[in-house]
Measured scan of single mutants.
Amino acid sequence: ARCQGVVCAMKEAFGFIERGDVVKEIFFHYSEFKGDLETLQPGDDVEFTIKDRNGKEVATDVRLLPQGTVI
């Protein structure tokens, strides 16, 4: 199932997405972002798939959504 959220933090090689369905942040590695990383910034709406890696939830297949998609 695809989830939606808003990019809330960006570091050197990874970032965090504030999920739209639950009050929780989820980790994503930049290699999982399908698009131009140069244009990705905090506040952007994205959709993603949640996978379990070593007992921790991570966002994979992260894709940009049109602004205003995530309420």
Rank of each mutant, 00 (worst) to 15 (best):
Ala1Pro: 02
Arg2His: 15
Cys3Thr: 15
Gln4Trp: 06
Gln4Cys: 08
Gly5Met: 02
Gly5Asp: 03
Gly5Val: 01
Val6Ala: 14
Val6Asp: 01
Val6Gln: 14
Val6Gly: 02
Val7Thr: 01
Val7Phe: 04
Cys8Asp: 03
Cys8Thr: 15
Ala9Gln: 14
Ala9Glu: 04
Ala9Lys: 05
Met10Asp: 01
Met10Phe: 03
Met10Ser: 03
Met10Ile: 06
Lys11Thr: 06
Lys11Tyr: 07
Lys11Asn: 09
Lys11Pro: 14
Glu12Cys: 09
Glu12Thr: 12
Glu12Ala: 14
Glu12Arg: 08
Glu12Trp: 03
Ala13Leu: 09
Ala13Val: 08
Phe14Ile: 05
Gly15Tyr: 01
Gly15Gln: 02
Gly15Trp: 00
Phe16Ile: 09
Phe16Trp: 03
Glu18Trp: 15
Gly20Val: 11
Gly20Pro: 14
Gly20Glu: 09
Asp21Ile: 05
Val22Phe: 11
Val22Gln: 09
Val22Ala: 14
Val23Asp: 14
Val23Trp: 07
Val23Asn: 14
Val23Ile: 12
Lys24Tyr: 05
Glu25Gly: 10
Ile26Ser: 01
Ile26Tyr: 11
Ile26Asn: 01
Phe27Gly: 07
Phe27Trp: 06
Phe27Arg: 08
Phe28Gln: 00
Phe28Glu: 02
Phe28Lys: 00
Phe28Asn: 02
Phe28Val: 02
His29Arg: 06
His29Lys: 05
Tyr30Val: 07
Tyr30Leu: 08
Tyr30Asn: 04
Phe33Tyr: 13
Phe33Ile: 02
Phe33Ser: 02
Phe33Glu: 00
Phe33Trp: 03
Phe33Asp: 01
Lys34Arg: 12
Lys34Asn: 10
Gly35Pro: 01
Gly35Glu: 03
Asp36Ser: 12
Asp36Glu: 13
Leu37Asp: 03
Glu38Val: 08
Glu38Tyr: 08
Thr39Cys: 12
Thr39Asn: 14
Thr39Trp: 05
Leu40Asp: 00
Leu40Glu: 00
Gln41Ser: 11
Pro42His: 05
Pro42Gly: 04
Pro42Ile: 12
Gly43Met: 04
Gly43Gln: 01
Asp44Tyr: 07
Asp44Asn: 11
Asp45His: 14
Val46Pro: 00
Val46Asp: 01
Val46Phe: 01
Glu47Leu: 07
Glu47Ser: 13
Glu47Gly: 08
Phe48Asp: 01
Phe48Cys: 00
Thr49Ala: 10
Thr49Asp: 09
Thr49Pro: 00
Thr49Phe: 08
Thr49Glu: 10
Thr49Gln: 08
Lys51Phe: 08
Lys51Gln: 12
Lys51Trp: 05
Asp52Glu: 12
Asp52Tyr: 05
Asp52Lys: 09
Arg53His: 12
Arg53Ala: 14
Asn54Leu: 06
Asn54Met: 12
Asn54Cys: 15
Asn54Gly: 15
Gly55Ala: 03
Lys56Val: 12
Lys56Ala: 09
Lys56Ser: 13
Val58Pro: 03
Ala59Pro: 02
Thr60His: 05
Thr60Pro: 00
Thr60Gln: 05
Asp61His: 05
Asp61Tyr: 03
Val62Gln: 00
Val62Pro: 01
Val62Phe: 01
Arg63Trp: 07
Arg63Tyr: 07
Arg63Ser: 10
Leu64Cys: 07
Leu65His: 11
Leu65Val: 15
Leu65Trp: 04
Gly68Val: 06
Gly68Phe: 07
Thr69Cys: 13
Thr69Val: 10
Thr69Ile: 09
Val70His: 12
Val70Trp: 07
Val70Gly: 15
Val70Met: 13
Ile71Gln: 15
Ile71Lys: 14
Ile71Gly: 15
